[in-house]
């Protein structure tokens, strides 16, 4: 894993009160809105474990909604995210699920609907110190941190797709830090997650889309 930086110790710079319940929560939602890409019309948050029990007192709800609005962990607008969401006509709702307990104690499911009719379901875990992981996209278990720029490719599980993706990155001289494939089943829908050392140009999306088995490409820039 990545080495620990002095700014992991003295950081993140964040809106309080809790690195796991506030900063980590806003980071999950921030990643989710980046993945959704377009303008968000509706969002439903389902909170589990400790999130479900203490979300109000920790401002987890404001932080999650702030992340959806594109606010980073140190953005003071997080405090007013309910009002700003209403101004921007984003329909939002918070649900709790205290029945399912076999999840990480700080877990949230985020259901997003965009103006251009895209629907995305993301599950994130806040794993402490403001760090988080995305562990599910739609119904497929995945794993990435959001600490690197990432391309998330939705594809049919067929030969040659990975070669195509790697080629598109290589053509642009982009170094891959981590790359993983998750699939629903053989020849079914799959997700390739590529985390890279440098930022990803928008046109990379079109280049990867050239392959006939690729259904969608989401770019998450850091």
């Amino acid at each position: 894993m990545a080495s620990i930086s002095v700014f992991d110790v003295l950081g993140p710079n964040m809106i309080g009160p809790s690195s796991s319940h506030t900063a980590g929560a806003s980071s999950i939602a921030y990643l989710a809105q980046k993945m959704a890409g377009g303008s968000i019309k509706k969002v439903v948050f389902t909170l589990y474990g400790s999130f479900a029990k203490t979300y109000h007192g920790h401002g987890t709800d404001k932080a999650l909604l702030g992340g959806i609005l594109g606010f980073k962990t140190d953005d003071k607008r997080i405090r007013d995210s309910f009002r700003i969401a209403e101004d921007r006509k984003v329909d939002f709702k918070f649900l709790t699920n205290e029945v399912e307990t076999d999840v990480h104690p700080n877990t949230v499911d985020i259901h997003i609907e965009t103006e251009d009719a895209r629907v995305l379901d993301v599950r994130g875990e806040s794993i402490g110190g403001g760090k988080c992981r995305i562990v599910r996209i739609d119904n497929v278990p995945v794993d990435f941190s959001g600490e690197y720029s990432a391309a998330i490719i939705v594809q049919k599980d067929m030969p040659g797709v990975i070669k195509h993706i790697a080629g598109a990155l290589s053509d642009r001289n982009i170094n891959i830090a981590f790359m993983r494939l998750f699939r629903e089943g053989k020849h079914e829908r799959a997700y390739t997650i590529v985390e890279t050392d440098s930022s990803l140009p928008e046109e990379l999306k079109d280049a990867i889309m050239q392959n006939k088995y690729v259904e969608d490409v989401m770019l998450v820039q850091i």
Binding site: P12, N13, I15, G16, P17, S19, G129, G130
Partner: peptide
């Protein structure tokens, strides 16, 4: 106090010990 009122702080090393 700032932390508990959703103000801006630096986790050092955590928010609760900032």
């Amino acid at each position: 106090e700032v932390n508990a009122s959703m103000g801006l702080i630096v986790a050092s090393p955590t928010a609760g010990s900032s």
